[in-house]
Design a protein around this nucleic acid. Structure first.
Lengths: 111, 111
DNA sequence: TGCAAGTACATAAACAAATTATATAGCTAT
DNA sequence: ATAGCTATATAATTTGTTTATGTACTTGCA
C-alpha cells in the first residue's frame, strides 16, 4: 500500500499493546498481525515496529527477552508491563471518544 | 488540550474540505469550527490551518480570494474546487473504511 | 488616552513518528 | 549456488504538526 503512514500514526503503540496483552510476541510477528488485520489498507514497515519498541521500552510499557534461537533466526520477545496495560486501557477509551468526534468532523452533520 | 497533534494529523485537510463544501470560509473561522466540534478533545493551531491552506492550494483543492475588509481585519476566503470535492469524497470513504479497521486492530476481537 | 482582548493572517524553526535505505544473518527449497 | 522467507537493527529522510514570533485592525473599558 502506498504510504499509509498517517493512517497508522499515533495508533502503532496502541495496537502493539493490544497484541501484547493477548500474549508475548516479537517484531516480525506483530508486523504480520497488523498487516493481516489491515485488510490490504494498512501497511507497517519493520522499522516502524522496532523504533516503537525502543520508545515503549524507555517509557516502561514493555520488557524484552531473547527467545531460544533453536532452528531459525533469533527472536527478541516483548512482554507488556502493568504500566503498559494501564496505558492501553486509557488509549482504548481515547480511541472510542476520538473516532466518534472525528467521524462527526469529517462526515459533517448538516445538509 | 495538550498536544492533540497526532489525533488530527492526516485529517486536517479532510475536515477543511468538508467545511468548505458547506460554503466558503476563512482560516480563523475554520479553526473555531474545528475546536467547537472537537468537544474539548481536539485542538488546532492557526499555523496548522494556514500551512494546510498553502499545501491544498498547490494541490488545486481550493482557490482563494480576499474578502472586502470593511469593518474589521481583512479576511482571506477559501473556496473548494471540483478536484477538492472529489478528493473529499475519496477521503470520506477512506475514513469509513480505515476507522472500522483501526477499531478492529485497537479493540481486538479475541479473548 | 491608553491598553487589553479579540479578530485575522503569515512564516520560520523545532519536533515527533513515520518511511526509506541499508546492513546483517540463519534456514529452506530448487 | 541462489532466491526467498524469517528476523532484527539503525541512520537518514520526509511530512504534518506545534511553537514562536510578527504584523495589524477593532471594540470596550477605565
Amino acid at each position: 500500500m502506498a504510504g499509509s503512514g498517517d493512517i497508522l500514526r499515533g495508533h502503532t503503540e496502541t495496537i502493539i499493546l493490544r497484541i501484547l496483552q493477548e500474549g508475548d510476541s516479537y517484531g516480525y510477528e506483530i508486523a504480520k498481525d497488523i498487516i493481516d488485520g489491515g485488510e490490504g489498507v494498512i501497511d507497517v514497515k519493520d522499522a516502524t515496529i522496532y523504533t516503537a519498541f525502543r520508545r515503549m521500552e524507555e517509557e516502561g510499557l514493555l520488557t524484552t527477552y531473547w527467545g531460544d534461537g533453536v532452528g531459525g533466526a533469533r527472536r527478541r520477545y516483548y512482554k507488556i508491563t502493568e504500566k503498559g496495560k494501564q496505558v492501553y486501557a486509557a488509549k482504548l477509551e481515547e480511541w472510542k471518544l476520538v473516532s466518534r468526534i472525528l467521524t462527526k468532523l469529517i462526515v459533517g452533520g448538516n445538509r
